[in-house]
Computed example of a mutant assay.
Amino acid sequence: MSTYSIKDLEQLSGIKAHTLRIWEQRYDLLQPKRTDTNIRYYDDDDLKLILNVALLNDNGFKISKISKMSPSEMRDEVIRLTDRNLTHDDQIHALTICMVEMDEERLEKVLSTNILKFGFEQTMLNIIYPFLSKIGVLWQTGAINPGQEHFISNLIRQKLIVAIDGQVSKYTGKKFLLFLPEGEMHEISLLFAAYIIKAKGHQVLYLGQNTPREDLKAVYRLHRPKYLVTVITTSPSQDNVQEYLDELSQNFQDSEIVVSGYQIVGQDLNFPKNVRALHYIRQLRDFVEEINEVMVEK
């Protein structure tokens, strides 16, 4: 079971810590535990409760009424609400609850409902990515355990693979080679890049996680792609990213290399002439659309 500080609850629920403390005192809404050194902390049940409270409160329920609900009444009301036409923030709350409860059936329903309503691309951009960003920092600090993170990422990965397979293309566009560096296993952004590129009519050569340098060179020699795309989240480390970018630029001089990820965004790096950094996943969509516009003009 994970433990959370009141700041963790604030980040995940959007309810200010000051407000949470008032609700504790006035409505006995939360009952924090204490460590041997008298430090307050909260558990998974507290997090589930406050996420449900936040969603209900955002949709017009007064805290005085919410505090009188039983856990089952609260959950039923939350499910009823998330089945309706709610905001992106409400859906992100619903996904967070599914993650904490490890509720695969409910998660599947939330994702499928949003995909049907908004389309796969908009669901990724407006709901799934903000959700992953929201939980990412807490996972790194240990507030969310690796099992919960793997549960979520594997289900999203499955959705991405199905969506990619569903794209029927005649490959009239350019050839893209997608890969992750050696040691890099965070694949969701690369899979979504594959979806976007394929949906726009281009050919995707997908090498995926942990691609050895020599394998990358061999595939490149065989296919001569116009573009290479990679995402650097953890590997190579920050100290070695510049060297890695320079190496990519030198080895694949005839192609444009598109890079993104945690080790790229906001870092003090010098990008070689044939390397382009994207700071947001939306920029990849814009980049591919620019290519399509040039192709049409020609």
Rank of each mutant, 00 (worst) to 15 (best):
I144N: 03
G136F: 07
S112C: 08
W139S: 07
L95H: 09
A94P: 04
F118V: 05
E108Y: 11
L111N: 04
V110K: 05
E104H: 11
Y129F: 15
K134H: 09
N145Q: 10
E101S: 13
F120A: 03
S133P: 04
C98T: 10
N145A: 02
K134Q: 13
I97P: 09
L116C: 06
E101D: 13
T113Q: 14
E149P: 00
K117G: 01
W139M: 05
H93G: 10
E149S: 07
P146I: 04
L125Q: 15
E104D: 13
N126S: 15
E149D: 10
M102S: 13
R106N: 11
F118G: 00
I144V: 14
I115S: 01
Q140W: 06
N114W: 02
C98Y: 02
I115E: 03
K134F: 11
G119I: 06
L107N: 00
P130M: 10
T123M: 01
Y129S: 12
K109M: 13
K134P: 05
M124L: 10
T113L: 12
L107P: 01
Q148C: 03
K109Y: 10
E108C: 04
Y129G: 05
E108F: 06
R106W: 15
L125V: 12
C98M: 10
E105Q: 12
G147C: 04
E121L: 06
Q148K: 13
Q140E: 14
N145I: 00
K109G: 01
N145V: 02
N145K: 03
E121Q: 11
F120Q: 02
V100T: 08
G136R: 03
L116H: 05
I135K: 07
A143M: 03
L95S: 10
G142T: 09
S112V: 07
I115F: 01
S133C: 11
C98H: 07
Q122F: 02
V137E: 15
N114E: 06
P130F: 12
G119S: 06
L107K: 04
E108L: 06
K109W: 07
L95K: 09
V110S: 04
Q148M: 10
I128E: 06
W139P: 01
L138W: 05
V137D: 15
N126A: 13
E108A: 08
K134R: 15
E149M: 00
T113H: 06
V100D: 06
F131L: 09
S112T: 12
L132S: 09
I128L: 11
S133Q: 14
M124T: 00
Q148W: 02
I127S: 03
E104K: 13
S133A: 11
G119L: 04
E101R: 15
E105G: 14
E104V: 08
I115Q: 05
A143L: 00
S133T: 14
L107C: 07
C98D: 14
I128Q: 00
F118A: 02
H93E: 07
M99T: 10
N145M: 07
Y129V: 15
Q148E: 04
I115A: 01
P146W: 03
Q122K: 14
E101C: 07
S112E: 12
T96K: 15
L95P: 12
L116V: 02
G142W: 12
L125E: 15
N126P: 09
L111R: 00
L111A: 06
L125S: 10
E105K: 11
Q148R: 10
